[in-house]
Design a protein around this nucleic acid. Structure first.
Lengths: 233, 233
DNA sequence: GTTTTTATGTGTAAAATTGACACGTAAATA
DNA sequence: TATTTACGTGTCAATTTTACACATAAAAAC
C-alpha cells in the first residue's frame, strides 16, 4: 500500500460497512436474527443487521455499536468472520463489508425480536428466507464457521444461560452441527475438558431425574488455553 | 447497514488497502517476503507488500495484482487472513487493510527478491526486523494461521515444487511449526491421507539412498474433501 | 404406596489411532 | 568391498474413540 501517487482525501474509494450474523438458541433450534428492510434497495426483504463504519471506530466497535442498537445487548461474543468485497454486491455503489458473527446468551434471546416495535426477528437456521444483498452467502459462511469452531473451541456456552446442564449443551451441539451425538460419549468428552464448574442445585419438576447444573469456568479455560491445552470435541 | 441517512459519495470514509504476508520455503527455513519502503512514513523500514483497493476490483483481486506486480508470480495460493481497522494504524489517515497470506512455490522462490532491481527480499521467519505500520501484528496473525491451518489442511505442497519427496515435506512442516516430528510416523500419516501420487523417478546423487518422489493429487483431494474427509495431521 | 415412564449419570469392552521405537535398504564415498 | 548416510517398512504398547449396558432419580400413573 501507501506508495500510491494519487493518495489524497479526494481519491475515489469504497464505503465500508459491517454486517453481523447473530446466532441465538431457544433450547431446540439454532436461530439467526434478521432485520426487515424498510427502504430500497431490497425493501421488504430480510437482511443481516449492519451499518457504515464511522471514521473514529474500528470495524469491531462498529459491529458492537450496531448490535447494541439493534438488540440492546452488550458484552456478547463477537468474532470477525470475513470481508466481502464483490464490486456489485450493493446496487447503490461500491461497498465493502467486514462481517462478524455474534453469539447471544439464551437469557437475552427471549428479550430480542418479537415485539411489534422492533423490525428484528429470530429465524430458525433451517427456515431462513432469501436475504438481501449477498447476505445469503455471508450467513452460509458464518454458519460454516460456527460449525467448524465449536469442534475445537468451547464457545457453545455463549449461547446458553449462565447456568446450564450437559444435556442442554448437547442439544445445542446437535442443533449447530445438525447431527446426533451419543449422550454418554458427549458427557465424557465435555467433562474431560475440565472447564465445567458444578453447581449444587439440580433441575426439578421435569417428570424425570433432573440433570446436574454447571457454569462455564472462564478463568480455568483461559489458564488451560495459555498452556496450549486442546479443546477438541 | 444501508439505512444510514447521510449515505452519499461525499460521506467521509476510510481508505481500503490490502497487505499480503507472502511465505516461501528454501528447503530449510520458512521465509517471508518484505519490501523496503522508499517514502515516508516509515521510510527505510521493511513492510508487507500491499496497496490501495481500486473501485473495480475485489480485495482478493487487489492482493493478487499487488502480488504479481511485486513478485511477477501468478496463480499462487492466496487466502484472506483478517481485516485490521485500528483508527490510528496509518499516520496519514484512516486506512483499513484487508490482509491476505500467500504461499509461493519453491520453484518461484528463487526467482523473487535478491536482484538489485527489486526492493523485495526474503527474510527467514525467525529473523524478521521490526516492521512498518502494524505489520508486525499482521505477520504474527499470518504465521499463527499458517501453523494452525497446516495441521488440518494439506497446503504445504503450495510451498514446494510440483514434484517433491516426503522428507522434504516433513522438513517444511518442521520449519512452519518449529518442532521436530518423527520421520516414520510422519510418513505413515501423510501417506494415509491418500492424496500423494507417486512418481517413478527417485532423487539421485545425494550420497545416500534417494527418496521417492510424489506429486500432490489435487483432484483426489477435492473429491475426498467434498465427501467430508478429514485431513488432520 | 407401588409401579411405570422418562431422562440422567456411570461403567466397560472392542476397535482404532497414536507414539516410540528396531530393522532392513539403497546410493555414494572411502 | 566396507562404510556412511538417510530413506522406507514394520511392530508393539499406550492411548483414545466408539458402541453399548446398566443403575439412578424424579414425577406421574395405577
Amino acid at each position: 500500500m501507501e506508495d500510491k501517487k494519487n493518495y489524497c482525501y479526494e481519491y475515489p474509494r469504497p464505503s465500508v460497512t459491517t454486517d453481523c450474523a447473530i446466532f441465538g438458541f431457544d433450547g431446540i433450534d439454532l436461530h439467526i436474527l434478521l432485520i426487515e428492510r424498510g427502504i430500497e434497495p431490497f425493501k421488504g426483504q430480510w437482511a443481516l443487521p449492519g451499518g457504515f463504519v464511522e471514521m473514529d471506530e474500528t470495524t469491531e466497535e462498529c459491529a458492537r455499536r450496531e448490535l447494541a442498537e439493534e438488540t440492546g445487548v452488550k458484552d456478547v461474543f463477537l468474532e470477525q468472520l470475513f470481508t466481502f468485497s464483490d464490486v456489485k454486491r450493493d446496487p447503490r455503489g461500491r461497498v465493502i463489508t467486514v462481517s462478524y458473527f455474534a453469539l447471544i446468551k439464551s437469557t437475552d434471546f427471549k428479550l430480542i425480536g418479537g415485539d411489534d416495535a422492533s423490525d428484528a426477528l429470530w429465524f430458525p437456521i433451517n427456515e431462513v428466507p432469501s436475504l438481501a444483498f449477498d447476505h445469503d452467502r455471508i450467513l452460509r459462511v458464518a454458519h460454516d464457521r460456527l460449525k467448524g469452531k465449536i469442534k475445537y473451541e468451547p464457545i457453545g456456552f455463549e449461547l446458553l444461560e449462565e447456568v446450564f446442564t450437559i444435556p442442554q449443551l448437547q442439544r445445542l451441539y446437535e442443533a449447530i452441527l445438525g447431527i446426533q451425538v451419543d449422550r454418554r460419549n458427549f458427557n465424557r468428552k465435555i467433562t474431560s475438558l475440565d472447564i465445567l464448574e458444578p453447581i449444587e442445585d439440580k433441575i426439578e419438576g421435569v417428570g424425570h431425574k433432573g440433570a446436574r447444573q454447571f457454569r462455564f469456568d472462564k478463568e480455568r479455560y483461559q489458564a488451560l488455553k495459555s498452556r496450549g491445552f486442546n479443546f477438541e470435541i
